[in-house]
């Protein structure tokens, strides 16, 4: 896939970083404000997708199976599952229980394990949406060949 015009490329170059940071902001404030892992992950993936769309995928040399994102996704969701299982090992020993100290309400580092879930779910969602996008892109490139 070829890239777009110079105007799009320059605008994207300016915006992509900001969008990425905004996604990160939504993820880490998930337990304080609306949003969280899923919403933030989609925004993070959006910044990558914007870059690929603007600059084209030719320079990425996509192979038939793109595995980096798949492995990130699986690793992230596995860690989230391990945190949930950690509830069975520590504290009250219940699946999905909040086994870290809660802290004070309203601070950034508080609410026990919920920020951790948000971070890893955010990683998972970003990686999986990127995986879907890359898979569709690879399919399309195979079609046009």
């Amino acid at each position: 896939m070829k890239g777009m015009t110079l105007i799009v490329k320059e605008t994207t170059r300016l915006l992509a970083g900001l969008i990425f940071l905004y996604g990160i902001y939504i993820i880490i404030h998930g337990h304080l404000t609306p949003g969280g892992g899923f919403a933030g992950g989609v925004v993070v993936a959006g910044s990558f997708i914007l870059l690929i769309l603007a600059y084209g995928s030719d320079y990425m040399h996509l192979t038939r199976e793109e595995t980096g994102t798949t492995i990130t996704e699986n690793l992230a969701i596995l860690i989230a599952l391990l945190i949930a299982l950690g509830g069975m090992a520590f504290g009250v020993k219940i699946f999905f229980s909040n086994w870290l100290p809660r802290g004070t309400v309203g601070e950034l580092v508080s609410a026990g394990v919920i920020p951790l879930y948000n971070i890893f779910i955010g990683m998972e969602v970003a990686a999986s949406i990127l995986t879907i996008f890359l898979a569709l892109l690879i399919f399309k490139e195979e079609l046009t060949k």
Binding site: L81, K93, F95
Partner: peptide
């Protein structure tokens, strides 16, 4: 509370994700 109950779901989920990671290497 019977600790087996959540494991019925957690074990196959962990197996699914581990297979994807280990299967690569």
């Amino acid at each position: 509370m019977n600790p087996l109950i959540p494991l019925f779901i957690a074990i196959p989920l962990a197996g699914a994700f581990l297979t994807m990671i280990l299967g690569k290497f």
